[in-house]
Design a protein around this nucleic acid. Structure first.
Lengths: 195, 195
DNA sequence: CGGCCAATCTACCGATCGATAGATTGCGTC
DNA sequence: GACGCAATCTATCGATCGGTAGATTGGCCG
């Protein structure tokens, strides 16, 4: 009955700061993506890591700091935003860039869910991630508009594409049986044309 | 300095149960649409109504019951779902029905925001509104597919339309300067065609 | 092997959470 | 004008919230 080597040991286990910090961020991201920031407590995160509340706060001064670290972790894992770099004279090429991102995101359910859940929660001006999503949304729309500069009204097209994009992710998060690529292709077949 | 007739009086004011219940639901809907159910407390709602916490619980046994009443109130105010009744052999007619709903929703910012915020929060299986949105989403998609039965793949088209629809509402909630009708028309010009 | 730094702990804080018990009082009815 | 129902109140509960203070101890370095 010795629990010294169990998966959830009682003994005090030390980890290198960077390792522990990483673990905390990963567990926090997992919990927050499942239920939202407002529904996750310091104790929940500590439990998930097998440590106590003050140990979490030793690595992150406050819950808001931890959330910031989770958002930074999310950015770090996000698909490279090629639509801000490349040239998009060719609609078909633009389509392929967006399409491959959809393909990539379909392998990252937790990260997409984190985005969907936090984005809605952060609509509140008082939410600690409000500013983050304000800025991120602005940059995304600008990038989309640049990638759609061959359209008559690039910003209008960007809003249309961004609406469909985020809506599709939300639908997929709610129902994992949905094939995002199939729905994307149906939309893209009409959207990525010069006419 | 007598506060007896002030807008926030200290004196005990009685209201007819149905009136008080209505007030509580309205204030709860307003607060929840702003910050989400998880961010609103019983005390917040009581304060907004100018009463104490136990008085709120006198009319609604628990917070979950109050949330259910808020959702029922939302349904009651929602635009009549004509796409479940009418015949949609004509794509242009279908477009007009959806379009008028977008037009209507653009006058109901708080209600739309309530939907957007709660929908994301309720992705969590443990959320008190989880079942509500599961059922609602299913019915919406079924209704959309029926209205799009002239499409080669009605359910695929329904998913595409629903993704764009909800995404557009989310974008508009985040940025009220967006003209939903303009973006809708850009999408609909390509979507509601037989080709 | 001894000493030090820091990762983690126990214990606790005041505030707030949703909810309950029971007293008060507004108000319609006879 | 007295009665009784019920809408509202005060007071309080135990649990939990994010966060702090200070003791403990693991593990590296000399």
């Amino acid at each position: 009955m010795n629990a010294a080597t169990d998966s959830a040991p009682r003994a005090q286990r030390r980890l290198a700061p960077e390792v522990r910090r990483r673990q905390i961020v990963l567990e926090a991201a997992r919990l927050i993506s499942a239920a939202g920031f407002n529904a996750v407590s310091l104790a929940d995160i500590a439990d998930a890591c097998g440590i106590r509340k003050p140990s979490v706060l030793h690595h992150f001064p406050s819950m808001a700091d931890l959330l910031a670290a989770v958002l930074a972790y999310r950015d770090e894992l996000s698909y490279p935003v090629r639509y801000e770099v490349e040239d998009f004279a060719d609609p078909a090429a633009a389509n392929e860039v967006f399409r491959s991102t959809v393909e990539h995101n379909q392998q990252q359910r937790e990260l997409v869910r984190l985005y969907v859940v936090l984005r809605a929660e952060a609509l509140d001006v008082g939410h600690p991630a409000h500013g983050y999503f304000l800025e991120r949304e602005r940059r995304a729309l600008d990038g989309f508009a640049r990638a759609l500069s061959w359209k008559p009204k690039p910003m209008l097209a960007a809003r249309e594409l961004y609406s469909f994009w985020t809506g599709l992710e939300a639908l997929w998060v709610a129902d994992p049986t949905v094939d995002m690529l199939e729905v994307w292709d149906a939309f893209a077949a009409r959207f990525f044309t010069i006419s």
